[in-house]
Design a protein around this nucleic acid. Structure first.
Length: 815
RNA sequence: GCCGAAGUGGCGGAACUGGUAGACGCGGCAGACUCAAAAUCUGCUGGGGUGUAAGCCUCGUGUCGGUUCGAGUCCGACCUUCGGCACCA
């Protein structure tokens, strides 16, 4: 009897040996077959949870596989270390965010190492290190120089009781503050933005990407490009300077059917044009709107509400007076913040008009329309009516004709609008990258000179929420001198959104200690872009879109080359608690991976996570099935170490070689597609097959075929179970290291089946199964099928009308 | 609500490009080994019906409808769950 498989001993042993040998240190100068494999960097939340294992284990497998295929793989790791939870910990537990964060990193490093992944730790980067965020600031200055960073007012969640800005996450679903229960209001603050809209069209070009279609679709919809007309409605009100309201519409063909104008309640014109009689009602409505989220406002299910301002504008195309209303479904940030209401041809406007009693004039006739009022909005194509000189045109023709006309009259222009808004990068928080700007009473806003970077985040800040951001009350930080005039000035106290950190961490990984720029240019040229990126589907839009935007700016700055940062993307699913809910400590459904690892070993645990289902789906996680993996590893262990009785036996050799090559073929296809669950299944089948071959052999098994099988099995398992495979590789007398071997090749002829089961159907129902040679001819297959007893019984003497043959699959006899 | 996914045995899941539904594993049942248990090994295991039995019949992939010789897979409508919705990361 051999030694039993003892994961604790061998995992520790090999992790130490690999680290000592620098087995996973990438030679950055060997760039000929470079492969940059990137897994999303973890946030420094504390303990590594199952989700981290779920994200990184399979990534490690795929990275190891690429290495065995001969690529020089760079597989780095680092930490996303700025953010809200550190500040919450500071307030709740009285720990400094810096201490909380770096303590967590220390613990997570150890846990990550216990995974046995091939991370190259020499390239670790931590976003809260001044040497990292210094370059955030440097990039910010470059953005500012290129007019891609600007200041504007934007609403923020404000708790009047705590006197502080709240994250969306800190606002409860009922709109109150999570700490004190006070109703949260929107407060306008002047904040920093990045002009992502300038790159909107370029971001809509996905042609250089090998990404999942659903992510591309989500990004496309998020950017939401629409072409249409911006058209002016005349405003003639005494005492109001503005003489027009501009609206954006994608349906200029319906402009003759406008019966209302709807402004966003926040629209700057609202206060100016509202009549004294309507003032109270309008103000109450504006107040009420300020308490709603955009999601609530845009719900198509909710009843539409609005308030009349008491004034009118004029539709210049048909000279009609149009009442001006405000309604919460009009959003200030989209288009021009004003919407023209065409009830006959828009469902939302139809409901609005019904409710408030507007006319519903038809301007696009449905087919066979008899002139009677509509029961519902007609949004399909049709012919123009009641549209003056455009009557009789199809609405598609009318669209461009009306736009031409509006442009020639000077009432408006063709424009393109986007749903995507500029990126609000300001945060009124402490634990983030300080925005390197100075407010001088004389010179205005002045950038911090590059040679004064980094603007270091002060350690000694006060955290208790008392109104201002911690940086604002830090005298030593705030007070500075103006770089331009030398006079006293104040520092900007907003910090950056943490998505700034994750925009470019993979660039920093290449040279985390480089101090002459964000990245060593030679390494950037040789190693970028990332060849394979893996990470959670929850990042499909924001992180991945911001990061693409950032890359394009960095490219324009000459820092990187090429159109896109991430060539191939794979979105893994999210792992949930056994109750199907998101795992969290507060729900009590979180499974600590450390416990599982010490019980079953890292190899078994990571395999189990891969075995529970397709990687892109995620799903509920329970620990019940892990014993199946444990049993499999034990069986494979014993198969590799217990020598069977050998004998010359051609049948045995044939069976084993078929098993080996079939498995290599299946496993290779699966790992190429990231189908780790079925890859493990086929390896389990191979292990079962080895036992059957051994127990079923009459005389004994063929020695060479057996050795080939064991060697192949260990190589196929090496990426999945790196410690296990390494130990057995050594114990079976093979030279260190299994992780420096080549991926096994298969022989197509040996992998092929020579017999197949042909299904015989009568009228689509399975009636018989026949074993035939894989290369059987169509005629022979049909003949055999028709000769089957079961078929004859079901034919019941009737003549076949049609016989369908699918090679290697089935014969279907239709009567 | 909007955008993007998913729904298959008691459970996790498999099924190439429309062609045997349930691979592999968990759990369960039966047996072997054992004084006994654990571990291990072997066999069976979707529901219903029928037969002494080998077997045979039938239903079955969220729901309803459609296309097709044939649908888990394609089309239409709906239901449920999950991810995102711009200050969680």
């Amino acid at each position: 009897m051999t030694d039993r498989y003892d994961p604790q001993t061998i995992e520790k042993k090999w992790q130490e040996r690999w680290a000592a040998d620098g087995l996973y240190r990438t030679d950055m100068s060997a760039t000929e077959r470079k492969f940059y494999f990137l897994t999303m960097l973890p946030y420094t939340s504390g303990d590594l949870h199952v989700g981290h294992w779920y994200a990184m284990g399979p990534s490690d497998v795929a990275a190891r596989y690429r290495r065995m295929r001969g690529d020089n793989v760079f597989f780095p790791i680092g930490f996303d270390a700025f953010g809200l939870p550190a500040e919450n910990a500071a307030i709740k537990q009285g720990i400094h965010p810096h201490e909380w964060t770096y303590r967590n990193i220390e613990r997570m490093r150890g846990q990550l190492k216990s995974m046995g992944a091939m991370f190259d730790w020499d390239h670790e980067a931590i976003s809260s290190d001044p040497e990292y965020y210094r370059w955030n600031q440097w990039f910010f200055l470059k953005f500012y120089e290129k007019d891609l960073a600007y200041r504007a007012f934007a609403p923020a969640n404000w708790c009047p009781s705590c006197q502080t800005v709240l994250a969306n996450e800190q606002v409860l679903p009922n709109g109150t503050c999570e700490r004190c229960g006070t109703a949260v209001v929107q407060k306008d603050l002047e904040q920093w933005f990045f002009r992502i809209t300038k790159y909107a069209d370029e971001l809509l070009d996905f042609s250089h990407l090998n990404w999942p279609e659903q992510v591309v679709t989500m990004q496309r919809n998020w950017i939401g490009r629409s072409e249409g007309l911006e058209v002016s409605f005349a405003l003639e009100i005494d005492g109001v300077d503005e003489d027009e309201i501009r609206v954006f519409t994608t349906r200029p063909d319906t402009i003759f059917g406008v019966t209302s104008m709807v402004l966003a309640p926040e629209h700057p014109l609202v206060a100016k044009i509202t009549t004294p009689e309507q003032k109270a009602e309008v103000e109450a409505y504006v107040e009420q709107t300020r308490r709603q989220t955009d999601i609530e406002r845009l719900s198509t299910e909710r009843e539409k509400t609005g308030v009349f301002t008491g004034t009118y504008c004029r539709n210049q195309l048909n000279d009609t007076e149009v009442p001006i209303w405000i309604a919460d479904y009009a959003l200030l940030w989209y288009g021009t913040g004003a919407v023209m209401g065409v009830p006959a041809h828009d469902e939302r406007d139809f409901a609005f008009a019904k409710k408030y009693g507007f006319d519903i004039p038809v301007v696009i006739a449905p087919p066979d329309w008899d002139g009677s009022p509509l029961d519902e909005a007609y949004t399909e194509p049709g012919q123009q009516v009641n549209s003056g000189r455009f009557d009789g045109l199809s609405n598609e023709e009318a669209k461009s004709a009306i736009m031409d006309y509006v442009e020639s009259e000077g009432w408006g222009d063709r424009t393109t609008t986007y749903r995507v808004r500029d990126w609000l990068i300001s945060r009124q928080r402490y634990w983030g990258t300080p925005i390197p700007m100075i407010h001088c009473p004389k010179c205005g806003i002045v950038p911090v000179p590059e040679d004064q970077l980094p603007v270091v985040l002060p350690e000694d800040a006060e955290f208790q929420p008392t109104g201002d951001s911690p940086l604002e009350r830090h005298e030593g930080f705030v007070n500075t001198t103006c770089p331009k005039c030398g006079g006293p000035a104040k520092r900007e106290t907003d910090t950056m959104d943490t998505f700034m950190d994750s925009n470019w961490y993979f660039i920093r990984y290449l040279s985390p200690n480089f101090d002459k720029g964000p990245v060593d240019p030679a390494l950037a040229k040789a190693w970028l872009p990332v060849d394979q990126y893996t990470g959670g589907a929850e990042h499909a839009v924001m992180h991945l879109l911001y990061s693409r935007f950032f890359w394009k700016v960095a490219r324009d700055l000459g820092i990187v080359e090429g159109p896109e940062p991430y060539q191939r993307l794979f979105n893994q699913g999210q792992i949930m608690g056994s109750d199907g809910q998101r795992m969290s400590k507060s729900r009590g459904n979180a499974v600590p991976p450390d416990e599982q690892v010490s019980k079953y070993g890292a190899d078994a645990f990571r395999c189990y996570l891969m075995f529970i289902g397709p990687w892109n789906e995620g799903g509920p996680f329970g620990t019940k099935g892990i014993s199946g993996i444990q049993r499999w590893l034990n069986r494979a262990w014993n198969a590799a170490l217990d020598e069977p009785k050998f004998a010359d036996d051609a049948d045995s050799a044939q069976t084993l070689r078929h098993l080996t090559h079939k498995t290599i073929k299946r496993a290779t296809k699966d790992i190429d597609d990231f189908h780790f669950n079925t890859m493990i299944s086929s390896l389990m089948e191979m292990t079962n097959g080895l036992y059957q071959a051994r127990d079923g052999a009459r005389l004994g098994v063929d020695r060479d075929a057996w050795n080939e099988a064991i060697e192949s099995m260990l190589l196929l398992m090496a990426p999945l179970t790196p410690h296990f495979a390494e130990e057995l590789w050594e114990r079976t007398g093979r030279p260190y290291s299994v992780h420096q071997q080549s991926w096994p090749q298969f022989d197509e002829a040996l992998a092929a089946e020579d017999e197949v089961t042909l299904v015989v159907q009568v009228n689509g129902k399975v009636r018989d199964r026949i074993q035939v040679a894989a290369d059987i001819s169509e005629d022979a297959a049909k003949e055999l099928a028709l000769a089957s007893e079961a078929v004859k019984r079901h034919l019941d003497g009737k003549e076949p009308r049609r016989v369908i043959y699918v090679p290697g699959r089935l014969v279907n006899i239709v009567v």
